[in-house]
Design a protein around this nucleic acid. Sequence first.
RNA 1: GCGCCCGUAGCUCAGCUGGAUAGAGCAGCGGCCUUCUAAGCCGCUGGUCGCAGGUUCGAGUCCUGCCGGGCGCGCCA
Length: 583
Amino acid sequence: MNVFHEFKKIVAESLAEVSRRGGLSEDLDAQPFTVEAPKDPRRGDISTNVALAVSRLAGAPPRHIAERIVTELARHESVTRTDVAGPGFINIRLSDSFWRARLADVLNAGDTYGESGIGQGQRVNVEYVSANPTGPLHIGHARGGVFGDALAALLEKVGYEVTREYYVNDAGAQIVALADSIYHRYRALRGDNPGELPEGLYPGEYLNETAEQFARDGDKWLDAPRETRIESFGRRGSERMLAEIRKDLGDLGIRFDHFVHERDLHRDGTVASVIDALRKKGCVAEGILEPPKGKRPENWLPRKQTLFLSKNFGDDVDRPVTKSDGTWTYFASDIAYHHDKISRGYSELIDVWGADHGGYVKRMSAVVEALTDGDVALDVKLCQLVRVTRDGVPVKMSKRAGTFVTLREVLDEVGKDVLRFIMLTRRNDAPLDFDLSKVMEQSKDNPVFYVQYAHARSCSALRNARAAFDDVDLTAEALAKSDLTCLTDPGELALIKTLAAWPQSVETAAQAHEPHRLAFFLSELAAEFHAQWNKGNESPSLRFIVAENPSLSLARLALVRAVGFTIASGLRIFGVEPVDEMR
RNA sequence: GCGCCCGUAGCUCAGCUGGAUAGAGCAGCGGCCUUCUAAGCCGCUGGUCGCAGGUUCGAGUCCUGCCGGGCGCGCCA
């Protein structure tokens, strides 16, 4: 049960009743209002601003309306106390038995706890990573990948139908550069001294193997026409890089439902036809761009070119879709790609990009608006830089890639679960510090450890219970039927209330497209659980297992199990495996 | 020069789409181990939410203008 949804309905009914009897305006129920947990739990369990929200339209002071709503609410059986506070907030206290029943909700749901249907099966496309197949993934790609993957899982959890997608930029200048880079190594292998690696080619060692493959063909490529060379080297090189990228991502627990290749969009004419369609719609036309003010490019030549008229959709300038040599710009194929996504029938598109692509957001939103007349939403999530350090000292060089820290290096060192969790401990648009030493620390400074430890402890308590009590059924089903009225400690009831807030947290995180919120929730839940655990050190009567009182123990174990399920539920969204012990 | 993102405790950051007395961790100080794992817990100290206006019952949150930092700005992707 989502407690806040439940009470929103009840508050709305009370409001309707009040307005019906009191001759208040009819359509008060159209006003948006919130039902949430008050910041200070002493105020109550649930708080609503309904009276404040409705007061203007009702033409009555908020406190006055609140008083009348409160008398309606008080009829509800789980409501034990109501207050009107401050300017007109309504605070509601619910009975302990109501809360205890929520514990059974968790136990019945297991680690699916928090699932809901608010997405109503709407189809959402999440595109992420989409790194060029010209080199290995770096740590920034890992962030985008983990973020996108967790967001996809989060949306699925609340009832959206999600496609996880990767756009492969296997066309254009960078593939030519890739082909030339492999060719350079090939020549060296065949003894045809190529000299220094020219500017603009890829220096990393990772291309050597592909070059060796070609070298096995002998000298046949040395005199091959540049065109066929670019085709073969570029294709095989990008395919190989993509395979390696997919391996890295797979080991990080990231798999995609769908790959779209830029090359295909060119070859099957999608790019040309989409641009043509936009031209017919009046969104694409010939024009001459002004040079950017203040930046003064050196070789600026006013040139007539084909432009997407993104200014009509809120962009700062119109954007070219053709280069001076007549070929399509990257932007043109990205238009085609987004058209392709749209044609597959999504109600919402989410793109996860690096923050250095921020300047691209407006034009892409313009594209989606132009293509769908505003029917499909595009949300672009920008992931900020990851700073990798070891004991606070920046780690920069990679043996393999030359200039950056690769995903593989970090993954091999800290493991998938640590990498994934840490990536989700910050908002996507805030820079992230990733300290290789700190994330492996077993201390409360390390959120991965802290949350995992709470889960492990919940498992440990159950193991101990199995040893302490013979013939006791500790399955979730049995625990749900235990005598939960034994749970009377304020800490225990507070813990239940935290657990009961989980579905709402999942939902708001999903709607905001911000999985990091759940990392904070899990840390707070873990802290609360550790605190309750430690109370047992000081007062043995508060221990989860009280040998001489099995029914009390079972009720507490129900709570412990529910904490474990909720943490597991969150970790599963993150793609992190909950651990049962930490020895 | 223009656009986007960011500015919250000494440090690292939350702040649930406008709610009540702005929170957490670290650092500092003081407590708790014959233990259901002290790998942890409890308490204290710490704030002109970058600055100045505006919108309204109510602003860290929305609008405008400054200040400071990051990213980007045709023929790379």
